[in-house]
Amino acid sequence: MRLMIEAALAAATALTAVLGPALQHPETRAAPALPIVVVAPGTFAFRSPGEYLKNGWPVDAPERTVTFQRGFEIMKDEVSAADYAACVADGACKASESGTASAALPVTGVSYRDAVAYAAWLSAKTGENWRLPTDEEWSFAAAERLHDDSLGLPQESGNPAARWLARYRAEAADDKRDTQPKPFGSFGTNSKGLADISGNVWEWTATCYTRAVVGNDGQVAHSTENCGVRVVAGRHRGYMSTFIRDGRSGGCAAGLAPDNLGFRLVREKLSLVGRMRLLAAEALQGWLG
């Protein structure tokens, strides 16, 4: 606990000194008080992320039924710039590229590594277990906001450019062109109560990039996983190297990149130890005022 006290004191001091009035609200000085959505158990049709080949040609990923036996808890909003700045002030996160510390805006300009560092910091701070959602969890929670990235083209076309052009057209048609991060709630709330799903912030997931070969039976025959690249979820799926903070820089020469990179976290159910750590953190919060 000694380490936590030191960290919290340092955070409080640093925030006041460095970031000024914008961050002096008590919410940001201690562990953020976050609206959580409980996603109920259920079943949905899930199209796997990654690239799939059949008989040597790119095809739509196979769709499969995914069941969540238990529900899970996920942040209603993306992590705010202010909450992320608190982690930066604690020395546990690298400053985001966005440069803002607003409590009303999602943090953007953050990499997968930054998101993982924030989850670790938040977990230590709260005594809870926070982590990035998997692409499956994110897609299930996205509900009607989930974009099916299948192209429905005739398969095994002899024209390798056909899928490429179709993907480009689909993403271009969906391109809203306003890449400025918007205040929470600007993109509305979905049927499960999550805000701003598929707005102009793409969200990091824990899921690794996969390339797979599908047999004639539709089953994955073999696959290669590259965990140096993770799935970013949003209006359309993206695949980004874990250190990329600005999708437009990290994208390819002839495709369309995510507008912004941010994230929201899933809270694992608390263990007994976790509960005790949370109580201690709350006591600390009270002491700091």
Binding site: G56, P160, A162, Y168, R169, V213
Partner: peptide
Amino acid sequence: AHIMVDGEWNDDLMAQVQAPIP
């Protein structure tokens, strides 16, 4: 800038001999 070019693929100029596999 991007230029979207529609049309038939010319295998003589370029072909995928083996798509990426392990």
